[in-house]
Amino acid sequence: MTLIHFLNCLSLAAVPYVITYRLSGLSEHGCFWKCVQAASCYAVCQLGKMLFLATFVIDSVPYYGEALRHSMEVLDLVVLQTVMSRGGVYGDLRFLVTGFSWAAAEFIFTRLLPFWVGARGVEFSWRYLQMALDSNIGLVFHLSTAILLAQWKSSERSTPLVLALILLTYRAALFDALPLDPWALLAVKACASAVIGLSALSYTLNNNQKGYSNVFH
């Protein structure tokens, strides 16, 4: 609608990232470049996914396309895993760096442009606000996946962990399937993210005796 609306949306979406960046101590440990590196990995991964989808998706088989697209999320996990393991950052910061930078990259690549084009345009529409909220929820999701992935590497693979991971990878498909209007969908997503986030956190905490308190002081 106007420039103000664009600023609103931008702030709604971007400030939580800045906050998490600031408060979670990433800034102290100077792993800005790590984030940039992870972000670039995200970009490469998305690019690869798109290339793969473009070449292999055929419309003839009815559900084959969607299934393939959603199962590509698995690739995300894998890349996330590799980034975490080889990220060169140790300790419990690893999951935070990768999760955060992954979410930030996603925000930058998928949200910024529509905001600039849509929000600034004349026509007012709620869509941009919903996208902003959605990116916040996305952050939580990515962090929880990152945490879980960290567990995945260090401890045995308990079934709830695997389940959670699968749930996370196919969350987009699940949400699409819900026949809800945008606002209700957002609410559902928010709750889901909260639940998963907290459970992931509690799981990690339970899993490794040494707490992560130093991370979130």
């Binding site: 793969f52 070449t55 292999f56 998706v57 055929i58 003839s60 199962s71 698995v74 996990l77 894998v78």
Partner: peptide
């Protein structure tokens, strides 16, 4: 019209992914 990708490649890719996983 794209040469129809044979489903074989897709299945292979899934296995690769699982192997990595």
């Amino acid at each position: 019209t794209p040469a129809p990708a044979s489903p074989f490649v897709a299945v292979l890719s899934v296995f690769v992914a699982l192997a990595i996983f």
